[in-house]
Amino acid sequence: MIRFDTKIAVLLRDDLATWQRLNVTAFLVSGLARETPELLGEPYLDADDTEYLPMFRQPVLVFEAAAEVLGTARGRALARGLRFSIFTDELFQTGNDVDNRAAVRAVPTEKLALAGMAVHGPKNAVDKVLKGARLHG
């Protein structure tokens, strides 16, 4: 079994509907892939040499927590200097990247209504960020 020094984690607010959890997770991890391309492996090939896009080379763990824990996790990630992506409640009402960014820009950091966040970094730092969250299940 391969052991990784880093962790990729998604933290979702525990009151989201199933479709929201899936949608938020997909959007959040796209930010990590763009910011840290070395997280991606090589393209996949099947036996007929059909090529498929690469995916993360390590597992993505999905956690859930109450809104307060999510806010605390955001603060911990900022304090540790970790880069992370966020998804706010306002983004459920927008339909494109320009409006998404404007919706986030309009709200002060401490007042962001987070639906989720994704973070990548050293295992111990990510574990500290996620303290109080539980594995999604």
Rank of each mutant, 00 (worst) to 15 (best):
Phe92Leu: 12
Ala118Pro: 01
Tyr44Trp: 09
Leu16Arg: 08
Val24Cys: 02
Arg3Ile: 09
Tyr52Asp: 04
Pro59Trp: 03
Pro108Ala: 06
Arg34Glu: 11
Phe63Glu: 04
Asn124Val: 12
Lys128Pro: 05
Val126Asn: 02
Gln20Asp: 14
Leu112Asn: 13
His120Ser: 11
Thr94Arg: 06
Glu68Gly: 00
Leu12Lys: 09
Gln58Gly: 10
Ala79Gly: 15
His136Gly: 00
Tyr44Lys: 07
Thr6Asn: 14
Thr6Arg: 10
Asn100Cys: 06
Lys131Ser: 03
Arg13Leu: 04
Arg3Thr: 13
Arg57Tyr: 07
Lys123Val: 09
Ala113Pro: 13
Ala9Trp: 07
Leu12Gln: 09
Pro37Trp: 03
Ala115Pro: 12
Arg74Leu: 01
Gln93Cys: 01
Phe63Ala: 06
Asp46Ala: 04
Gly137Phe: 09
Leu40Ala: 03
Arg57Lys: 13
Glu68Cys: 02
Arg34Val: 07
Val60Pro: 10
Leu130Cys: 00
Glu51Leu: 10
Val10Lys: 01
Ser85Asp: 13
Glu64Gly: 11
Glu90Asn: 08
Lys128Trp: 06
Lys123His: 07
Phe92Gly: 01
Ala17Ile: 02
Val126Gln: 01
Ile8Cys: 04
Leu135Glu: 11
Asn100Glu: 13
Thr18Glu: 08
Asp5Cys: 07
Leu114Met: 04
Ala125Tyr: 01
Glu42Ile: 14
Thr88Trp: 12
Gly132Tyr: 02
Asp46Phe: 07
Thr18Ile: 03
Asp89Tyr: 15
Val126Phe: 00
Ala102Thr: 15
Arg105Gln: 14
Asp15Met: 04
Leu16Glu: 14
Pro43Thr: 14
Thr50His: 12
Lys123Leu: 05
Leu12Phe: 11
